[in-house]
Structure formats: structure tokens, C-alpha cells
């Protein structure tokens, strides 16, 4: 804003904006507060805001009773594994599309995008049956592959839009300087694209972390990530609110922090470069 706004108006806007922000954030804030209450305080009428005896008991209970870290570890495995696999496949593909485009490049990109639009439920049954057949049900490997496949188009797209911004002349210079294709990508392109690759990783970790169709349908316990862990709290009766809150906070906290840091890149990734 180039012009000064009157002080009164600015204060008015501040109050309104904070009110809207807090209303939207309220469920998360409330969950956060409740996670430190005793079960009794959690359901007290009228509700207490901060004037309660803060306790970490719920977090301890969650870990001992439900083995939180097992699910947390699975979430990390799945999101990092599928992202790493995605980069291995997507970096070369995005390199080719950005720097050696042909008449068909655009079609290939759009086709990849269209696979992302295939509703999961359309292929759930064969994938489910194949998972049974190959013993992949409730295995981390199987889920990593599925998450990798459903996010591959987004990874390719994001990398493609970032690579496009790198001048091709620099890669040609590397070629003139005697760099092999592998060195051209690993020593010239990748270091230059670090910010783009980092945002791609962040977005993809967020998407995999929160994926809740395949992770719910293809796991039972062994490979189950946090989405399934939370789903098991589906019907807590009465006095489980505090523990549900603690479990929820544990499930969303890591990704909430990652997400807050990567908010700028999100727009670009989620709109396939259509809005920057």
C-alpha cells in the first residue's frame, strides 16, 4: 500500500481481521487448549479457556496407550519415501520437458495432470485386489508407491515451472564445458533449482502426510500413518476429549509448522503454475 491509511481505519481493519483470523483458527486453538486439560475440564460447562490446570498427562497417555510414535514414524516414512521416489522420477522428466521441449511436451504435461484428476475410487478395487495378491496390503512399500504415483504429476509440474525459469544457456555452457548429462543435472541444474526443489518437497510432504483415502483403505495397523491413527479415535464417548485433542495436535503439529513455512510456494504448486 503506497498511501497512508488513517489510524482509525487501520485499527478498525486490525480488529476485524484478527476476529476473522481467530474464528477460522478457533477449532485448532480450542483443540490445542483442550489437549492440556484433564478429561473433566475438557467437558466442563461452561467451557474454561485458559484458567485450568495445565497438564501434559494426555500426551503421555497417547504415547503409552496408542503407540503414537509408531504411526508418526509411518507418516514420516510414507511422506519422505514417496517424495524421494517422486523426485528421482520427476527431476529427469522435468529437465527434459523444460529444456528439450517438443511439440508433444505440452500434451504430455496435460495428460499427466489429467491422471491426477482420476478419482481414486475409480481404481480402488483393482489396486486393493492387487495389494492383496502381492501381499502389499498394510505395507509401507505399497503405500509409498501409491502415494508416489498420485503425487508424481504435481511434482513434475512444479519442477517443470521452476526449471523453466532457469536459462537454457547455462546448461548449454555446461555441455560446452564437457559436463555429462548426469553432471549437467546434478552439478548445474539441481544446485540452481534448490529453492524450487525444496518447495516441491515441502508441498509433496504435506500432501502425502494428509492423504486420507489410500492410507485409510490400504492399511490396518502395521503401515498405518497418523491419518488412520486419528480415525481410530472416531467415536470417543464423553470423557476422551482431552486425549483426542492431544492426539490431534500430535498429528497435525509437524505439518502445520512445515506448511506455515512453505505457504508462498503452495499457491504455485496447487494450481499447477496457473497462479503464481
Amino acid at each position: 500500500m503506497a498511501r497512508n491509511v488513517t489510524k482509525g481505519r487501520k485499527i478498525g481493519t486490525t480488529i476485524l481481521a484478527w476476529f476473522v483470523g481467530l474464528v477460522i483458527f478457533f477449532p485448532i486453538l480450542w483443540t490445542f487448549l483442550t489437549s492440556f486439560k484433564t478429561e473433566l475440564q475438557a467437558i466442563s460447562i461452561p467451557p474454561v479457556f485458559v484458567g485450568f490446570d495445565w497438564t501434559l498427562e494426555n500426551y503421555a497417555t497417547i504415547q503409552t496407550q496408542s503407540n503414537y510414535f509408531h504411526f508418526m514414524a509411518n507418516s514420516i516414512y510414507l511422506s519422505l519415501g514417496s517424495t524421494a521416489l517422486g523426485l528421482i522420477f520427476a527431476i529427469p522428466a522435468a529437465w527434459a520437458m523444460a529444456f528439450s521441449p517438443t511439440k508433444r511436451t505440452k500434451d504430455v504435461l496435460l495428460w499427466m495432470l489429467s491422471t491426477k484428476m482420476l478419482p481414486a475410487v475409480g481404481v480402488l478395487i483393482p489396486v486393493y485386489l492387487m495389494f492383496i495378491r502381492f501381499g502389499l496390503l498394510d505395507s509401507r512399500l505399497g503405500l509409498i508407491v501409491v502415494l508416489f504415483l498420485i503425487n508424481l504429476p504435481i511434482i513434475v509440474w512444479m519442477l517443470y515451472t521452476y526449471f523453466k525459469e532457469i536459462p537454457g544457456e547455462i546448461l548449454e555452457a555446461a555441455r560446452m564445458d564437457g559436463a555429462s548429462l548426469r553432471k549437467e543435472i546434478t552439478q548445474v541444474l539441481a544446485p540452481m533449482a534448490v529453492p524450487g526443489i525444496a518447495s516441491t518437497i515441502l508441498l509433496n510432504v504435506i500432501l502425502s502426510w494428509n492423504e486420507a483415502f489410500w492410507t485409510l483403505n490400504l492399511t490396518t495397523s502395521n503401515a498405518a500413518p497418523l491419518t488412520a491413527f486419528i480415525a481410530s479415535f472416531s467415536s470417543p464417548q464423553g470423557n476422551f476429549y482431552a486425549k483426542l485433542s492431544a492426539a490431534s495436535m500430535l498429528a497435525i503439529a509437524p505439518i502445520l509448522i512445515v506448511g506455515w513455512f512453505s505457504q508462498k510456494q503452495l499457491v504455485r504448486g496447487l494450481t499447477f503454475g496457473a497462479v503464481k
Binding site: I24, F25, P27, I28, W30, T31, I206, W209, N210, A212, L216, L226, T227, A228, I230, A231, F233, S234, L244, S245, S248, A251, I252, I255, L256, V258, G259, W260, Q263, L266
Partner: peptide, 14 residues
């Protein structure tokens, strides 16, 4: 923007 990062199962249960 925080709610966007909340996984669907948590959002629904909360």
C-alpha cells in the same frame, strides 16, 4: 491458512 494443513481425519473429528 492453518486449517489447510490439518489432515482430513483430524478436521472431521475435531
Amino acid at each position: 491458512i492453518a486449517p489447510f494443513f490439518v489432515m482430513p481425519t483430524v478436521a472431521a473429528l475435531v
